[in-house]
Simulated assay, not measured.
Amino acid sequence: MAIAVAKFVAAAFTGSSSMLAEGIHSVADSGNQVLLLIGGKRAARASTKEHPFGYGRERYFYAFVVAVVLFTIGAAFSLYEGIHKIVAPHGVDAPIWAFAVLIFAIIAEAFSFRTAIVESNAVRGKQSWVAFIRRSKSPELPVILLEDLGALLGLIFALFGVTMAVITGDGTWDGIGTVMIGVLLAVIAVVLAMETKSLLVGEGATPEMERQIREALESAPEVARIIHMRTLHLGPEELLVGAKIAVAGEDTAGEVARGIDEAERRIREAVPIARVIYLEPDLDRARTTPDASPTGA
């Protein structure tokens, strides 16, 4: 917000549309951080009768709202202001204000972006940055990464537009820089919307996590094999696992119950976020009926 105030002051002194667009961009970014905090707080609520699986996916909803806010406020305003400046250009007054604020903001945003990179590296593992943004089940870090990247690039575009306007004396360059900011924000907003929509609709476990669950299930003595299995993220740190497992026909009900308990224990030990597990036992028809379909009932 401090950076936003500085940009608005610079915009007032210079009449630069790039500075005004960057000020709006900073306000939108600050509001987005508040939305992410609200989403995290609401997601922590205990489950209710109406929402028996809890509110974990509220984090996905608020991340989606962030994408909408970034597009409607940041991108739309920047595009409008940039096009208006191109149609009716005017020079940049007292450019020292713009240069001072932009250089300060670039340093501050670079530090913020570095912090986001360090935090992301702690959980990214060996994934590429594109894979991390696409596969992360926790929406906050990818959102902040893209926002910080957009903020840094937006400042560079603004600096380019103001510099060219000062050098050439043509305010059209200021408008071009503003349009570049708008296009950048629109692209980031679309990427965020697509990724968070996928999480909101419902994504399963990662291939590595699914492999760990299968190995844990198959290692249980009473489980002959897995007939089929489905997973679903109820939130970033809560996974639902549903599976139909084949058991020996000669096992008693008590043995099957104990086998299911042991299988659940092994799944939770291998994948701690697998908090909701439903296992349905079925006869191992591959053993009891040689001609039966290997997929079971």
Results as ranks from 00 to 15, higher is better:
residue 95 P to T: 01
residue 85 K to A: 01
residue 92 V to C: 05
residue 8 F to K: 12
residue 14 T to Q: 06
residue 72 T to D: 07
residue 5 V to D: 08
residue 121 N to A: 12
residue 94 A to N: 14
residue 89 P to R: 10
residue 28 A to M: 11
residue 100 A to C: 12
residue 90 H to Q: 12
residue 13 F to E: 14
residue 80 Y to Q: 13
residue 52 P to D: 13
residue 79 L to C: 11
residue 73 I to C: 02
residue 111 F to P: 00
residue 90 H to R: 15
residue 138 S to T: 10
residue 108 A to Y: 08
residue 136 S to M: 04
residue 22 E to H: 04
residue 9 V to Y: 09
residue 93 D to R: 15
residue 14 T to R: 10
residue 63 A to D: 07
residue 14 T to C: 09
residue 69 V to D: 03
residue 91 G to C: 09
residue 32 N to Q: 09
residue 48 T to H: 06
residue 127 Q to E: 11
residue 39 G to A: 14
residue 91 G to V: 07
residue 105 A to N: 10
residue 112 S to I: 02
residue 94 A to C: 10
residue 9 V to M: 05
residue 122 A to W: 14
residue 76 A to S: 12
residue 9 V to A: 12
residue 53 F to Q: 14
residue 110 A to R: 04
residue 123 V to S: 14
residue 46 A to Q: 13
residue 77 F to M: 06
residue 129 W to M: 10
residue 54 G to K: 10
residue 107 I to C: 13
residue 70 L to Q: 10
residue 109 E to H: 02
residue 37 L to T: 14
residue 16 S to P: 04
residue 136 S to Y: 06
residue 57 R to E: 09
residue 91 G to M: 08
residue 56 G to I: 08
residue 44 A to E: 15
residue 95 P to D: 01
residue 66 V to N: 01
residue 15 G to K: 07
residue 8 F to A: 10
residue 86 I to P: 01
residue 102 L to C: 02
residue 47 S to M: 13
residue 126 K to V: 07
residue 112 S to C: 09
residue 29 D to M: 11
residue 87 V to K: 15
residue 16 S to I: 14
residue 59 R to D: 00
residue 120 S to Y: 03
residue 94 A to P: 00
residue 39 G to L: 09
residue 41 K to V: 06
residue 33 Q to H: 11
residue 20 L to D: 04
residue 7 K to C: 09
residue 42 R to T: 00
residue 131 A to E: 14
residue 96 I to R: 15
residue 17 S to Q: 07
residue 104 F to Y: 03
residue 137 K to D: 08
residue 42 R to S: 03
residue 7 K to S: 01
residue 131 A to V: 10
residue 36 L to R: 06
residue 37 L to R: 07
residue 49 K to G: 11
residue 120 S to M: 13
residue 78 S to L: 06
residue 17 S to D: 03
residue 123 V to T: 15
residue 137 K to Q: 14
residue 28 A to R: 00
residue 130 V to G: 04
residue 64 F to V: 08
residue 69 V to C: 03
residue 103 I to Y: 10
residue 13 F to P: 01
residue 113 F to S: 07
residue 99 F to G: 04
residue 55 Y to H: 14
residue 80 Y to M: 11
